[in-house]
Design a protein around this nucleic acid. Structure first.
Lengths: 310, 310
DNA sequence: TAAAAATACTCCATAGGTATTTTAT
DNA sequence: ATAAAATACCTATGGAGTATTTTTA
C-alpha cells in the first residue's frame, strides 16, 4: 500500500468521478484508474462501484475512506511536528516573482511554505524578471521566480517549469475559429511585447521563434504587466504569446489558442545569488521543486540543474 | 514523504545500525542511506546522528519515530479492516511446497496470508515437485510451490524466484578453501541427487549445467528430502547443487560455496491447474509475488508470466 | 450514442544494485 | 587500521503519459 494510493482514493471518493479527481490530483485519468485498481486488488475488496454514470463507495470503501483520511492526516502532522522541532523556523524571506507565477507554482508553494514554516515572515514582491536581477544584487530579495533564459554574473538560474506557449487573441479575430495556430499563422500579426529589459527571456524566445519562419516581430506595443498585455489584446491592439498557465487569466474579449511549434516553450525558473547559501531559500526551492513534480509533472523542467543541495 | 521511508527509518532506529537494518529490510545499505537522507531533507531536520561507531536518535528523531510507528500501524490496521470486510475470508486452502521453500518465500508469505485472511484454514503439505503435480490433478492441493522448469498438461507454472545455485561440500573437502567454484571444479565429483521423478526441474538443470563442460553427472546417491541430501553431504558421500536459499540450512559438517556459472540458477515457481479459478489461490499468489518483489528483489523472476489476474 | 472508465503502449524518473570513497575511532 | 556510512554510477521497475477501446445508462 502506498500513500499515493490513499491520496488518490480519497480524491476519487470525494469527487465521485475519476476524471475530476484526476484533474484535482494534476494527473490524467488512466493512471488514476490503475492505482485505484491496484489498491483494490491488494485489499482484495472493491472500494468503489463504477458505472459510466456514477461512482459510489461500497461499504468497505466507506470504512476505508475514514482510515485513509486518518493516515494522511497523521502523515501531515508527523511532518509538521518534525519540522517544527527543527531550527530555522524563523526569520524573513524576500522573494520576487513574475506575475504569471501566481497562475502556476506560486500559490501552492506559498501555502506549503507557510504551513511548514509559520515562523518565517514572507516578503513577496511582484517584479519583472529583469527587475529581479537588480533586486538580487541589491539584496532586496533572496530569490526570484523569473522567465528563462537569462544570464547574469554571480546569479544562478534553475529551470522549474517548462510550459508550452499559447496565443492570446482578441475575440472576434479572424483566427478565433482555429483550434491551434502555427508560427506562420501568427508571424504577420502585430504583437504585444513585454519590454525587453524587463523580460529578456521571453523576448529572446519570441524573436527566435519567429526567426524559424524567417520573420521579424511586428511590435504593436510594449507593456510591463501581464494584466496590461491581456488588456491590450482585448482592445484589439494585437496578439500576445504567453505561457500556457497564463491562459488561466480569463478576461472578456480575449481567447487563447494553442501554438503548434516544437520550440515554443516558456520556462519558469528560480534565480538566486551564486554564493549566498540561505537555508530558507533552500527550503523554498525544495518546495517549488516538489510542487512542480507533483502538480505540474507534465511541465517539469528537464531535471533542472541540481542547484546546490543544503 | 513515503511509507517506504517511514519503514526504513523505523528499522534503522531499532537496529541503530544501517547495515543490519538494510539486511532486515532485504536491501543493500546504500539505498537505505539515500532514503533516510531524503526523508531528513524533506523534514528539514536530522533524525539520526551517525558516526562509524554508533547511530543514535536525535530529539526530533525520537519524536518522529513514535509518529512513524503509529502511521505504519494505522496502515496495517486499515488494510486488515478492509480485507476483513471482504467476502471470502473463509474456506480452506491446500498448498504443496518443496522443503526448500521454507527457507525463502514461504514463511513470510504464510505469515501475511494468515494475518490477512485469518478465517481461512491452511492445509500445508511438504511434497516434492513431481508429487505436487499428482496432488494437483487429484485435487489434494489447489496450488504448489515447485522447482522449475516443469511441464504438465493442464497445469500452469509461474516463476516466482530465480536464485543462484550453490554447492554443498562436506567440510574438510579439498575444495573447501575456495571461495567460489566453477562447473569444471565440481564436474568430476560424485553428486547427491534428488530423484528425477520427484524433482525433474532441478534434475534437468544440473544435467544441462554439466553438459556445458561436456560432463555427465556422477550420481553418488539419490535422495528424497533436502534434509537427507544435506545429511548425505555431511557424511562425505558426495556434494550437492542447491538453490542459494537452501544454504540457510546450516548443518555440522557441511559448507556452502558459490557456483560461478551464468546459467546456474534454480527457479522456485507456483503451479496451479489451468482452468481452476480460485479466489484464495489468486490471493496467495499475489502475496507470494509481493514477498518476492519486496524481500527477495534481487532474485525476482523475470516478470514472471502474468498468470491470470483475478 | 455519448460520456466515462478501462486497456494498450511508450517513456522516463527514480529506487535499488555494485563498486568505491570518505569518515571517525 | 578498520568498520561503517556516504557517494558515484548504472540498471530496470513501474508510474504516468497519449491513444484507443470498452462499457452502460
Amino acid at each position: 500500500m502506498e500513500l499515493r494510493q490513499l491520496r488518490y482514493f480519497v480524491a476519487v471518493a470525494e469527487e465521485r468521478n475519476f476524471g475530476r479527481a484526476a484533474q484535482r490530483l494534476h494527473l490524467s485519468q488512466p493512471p488514476l484508474s490503475t492505482q485505484i485498481k491496484a489498491l483494490e486488488e491488494e485489499l482484495g475488496t472493491t472500494l468503489l462501484e463504477r458505472s459510466t454514470r456514477r461512482v459510489a463507495l461500497t461499504d468497505a470503501g466507506r470504512a476505508f475512506l475514514g482510515r485513509a483520511r486518518e493516515i494522511l492526516a497523521a502523515v501531515e502532522e508527523a511532518g509538521a511536528e518534525a519540522r517544527g522541532a527543527a531550527e530555522g523556523n524563523r526569520g524573513r524571506l524576500a522573494i520576487g516573482f513574475v506575475s504569471s507565477a501566481t497562475l502556476s507554482l506560486l500559490p501552492t508553494a506559498l501555502g506549503i511554505f507557510r504551513e511548514r514554516y509559520p515562523g518565517v515572515d514572507l516578503d513577496l514582491q511582484e517584479l519583472a524578471s529583469g527587475e529581479q536581477v537588480d533586486a538580487l544584487y541589491e539584496g532586496r530579495i533572496e530569490a526570484g521566480l523569473v522567465r528563462l533564459p537569462m544570464r547574469s554574473p554571480e546569479i544562478h538560474f534553475e529551470p522549474l517549469l517548462e510550459e508550452p506557449m499559447i496565443v492570446a487573441l482578441p475575440s472576434g479575430h479572424a483566427l478565433e475559429g482555429r483550434k491551434s495556430l502555427s508560427v506562420r499563422d501568427i508571424a504577420p500579426l502585430p504583437l504585444i511585447f513585454f519590454q525587453r529589459r524587463l523580460e529578456p527571456g521571453s523576448h529572446a524566445q519570441i524573436v527566435e521563434l519567429l526567426a524559424t519562419v524567417g520573420a521579424l516581430p511586428r511590435v504593436a506595443q510594449y507593456a510591463v504587466h501581464l494584466q496590461t498585455v491581456i488588456g491590450l489584446v482585448a482592445s484589439g491592439m494585437g496578439i500576445a504569446l504567453l505561457a500556457e498557465s497564463s491562459g488561466n487569466l480569463h478576461r472578456e474579449g480575449v481567447v487563447y489558442r494553442k501554438l503548434r511549434a516544437a520550440g515554443a516553450r516558456s520556462t519558469l525558473g528560480l534565480a538566486r545569488l551564486d554564493r549566498e547559501d540561505s537555508l530558507l531559500v533552500d527550503r523554498f526551492r525544495e518546495i517549488l521543486r516538489e510542487v512542480a513534480r507533483r502538480d505540474f509533472r507534465r511541465w517539469t523542467a528537464p531535471t533542472g540543474g541540481n542547484g546546490k543541495s543544503p
